[in-house]
Amino acid sequence: MVITPQRNIVSRTWGTSVGKKSVIAVTGIVFLLYVIAHMIGNLKVFFGIETFDAYSQHLREIGEAIFGYEGVLWGIRAVLVGSVVLHMWAAFSLWYQAKKARPIGYQHRQRWEGSYAARTMRWGGVIIALFVIWHILDLTTGTVNPLGGDESAYLKLVASFDRWYVALFYILAVVALGLHIRHGLWSAIQTFGANSALKQNALKTFAFVVAAVITIGFAIVPLSVMTGLVR
């Protein structure tokens, strides 16, 4: 079989399933780093309204002297939006390839289908994307927040989670995020070729711990509002 050489690095990467997976892995790591920073920021809610709102304001003023007001923030947002597009584009392309690879399925359900986290990567990812849209409308723009857009970040957060169904939806979404990270982080390490038979269990445990810390770190905020710890 004659293989046409792919001379350009973009087409070389995008031209293979492993290349597309590496795009998913790199953008996934971008999200993971963002999510960890976001979680640390969220936890400032336990230090009171002044600290939290000052942090929220600070995010808009980082590097203001060079990039202007909200300059860095918009830069981060641009990187995240670009990553979302690449992450989902590559994932949908591989989803389509996988669908095509088995046009006729089995009559007897496959016994070994992998972990729950592995099986829910695709739909779980779609659910997380839908949640993020709601999340931005709620706490960034304030469109669906009871207090609207121009209130203090702390008060918007409390007002939003005072609605039990919103808090519950948020907790379910971060559990979905945790599952996605659990398989995604391990999978990214494997895609970068860093796995070995000896390290495999340790790497899977590492991904599980990171996922668990992030899930708890996010879920603790709505739980604290629901239990009245944060008012």
Binding site: Q97, G114, R119, M121, T191
Partner: peptide, 13 residues
């Protein structure tokens, strides 16, 4: 890839 095999998602089956 060309022969219509799917891509790997590290499921482990």
């Amino acid at each position: 890839d060309e022969l219509d095999f799917g891509g790997c998602t590290n499921v482990g089956a």
